[in-house]
Amino acid sequence: MLTYTLRRLLVAIPTLLLISLVIFLLVDLAPGSPASEIPLTVPAEVKAKMIEAMGINEPVHIRYLLWLKQFFWTEPLYAIDAAFGTDFADNAPRIISYSSKVPVIDYIAERLPQTLIVIGSAYVIAILIALPIGIYSAYRQYSWFDQIGTFVSMVGYSVPTFFTGLLAIIVFTSWLGWFPSIYNTSLRVVDWASFKQQVTQMFLPVAVLALFNAAELSRYTRSSMLENLSQDYARTARAKGMSERTVVLKHVLRNSLIPVITVITLGMPAIFAGAIVTEQVFKINGIGAALIGAIHVNDLPVVQTIAFITAILIVLFNLVADILYGILDPRIRYD
């Protein structure tokens, strides 16, 4: 298992480097010098520092290496400094957002938690709903439960979140007034009241995202379970006198989860993309909103960084999927 994991890890690194190069070049080679996009409102000495950090006057391969250095050296040093009060970074130049004039990483770090909290809880809820429904629908194929489940998830999966989102806002916020219409990004949960407020404002976006993802996941779970329920080993387990519970929840589920877990892990980066839409609809000031904003004002460092973070997430979750796959399936682990 260790060699397997190490091998996967070694494959991930060149992948990540390649993606970073592509993202860098795409933005870098876009018409116009990156420096020319720096707004005039930026003070001259800040601009000078940014040019130094990005190496704007250097050849392209140096600029790329400087950019990587920002990610994998300078910013981690700043993060350590911030955490332990040390001074490793030694005032090294950082990439600054053109529009907000704070370091890009700080800017993103401020936005990311909102997104993670909404997406994370939506995804967890989706999994918690989808697995039992998928398992039970498969076990009772063509029952009422299964048929209703099939219908609901077809609808849930085929209607996009911006539509269900708007519908939910119209019904529950405008007509019924159950939820606040403004998402307060700066809300800090410190006590019961603020916790309640946070839950209330999160409820609709989380519900919309969760239902959408649950629809898809429950279908996957169902079909994977169905495939495995009719396998010979399930019959063997029954022939051994195992209870239905053991047959379904141990033998069949363990096999069925292999593809489902892959779908769950690989789907995580994709729901970030979905969250961009949801954040627009519910006016959540998260990473999606940051990206859209940055694109509008040509804030290249922010766009580049968010794109790269997304790429890191994709590679990371691929790695996680591979490792989970290895844990769940001995045939992979021992190849």
Binding site: Y233, T236, A239, K240, G241, R254, L328
Partner: peptide, 20 residues
């Protein structure tokens, strides 16, 4: 099942659970 009556099936390649 499995206690008083034991069963052996045709295809040994698929009759055992691959993940246990």
């Amino acid at each position: 099942r499995g206690a008083r009556v034991g069963f052996v099936f045709q295809d040994p390649m698929t009759s055992l659970n691959p993940v246990f």
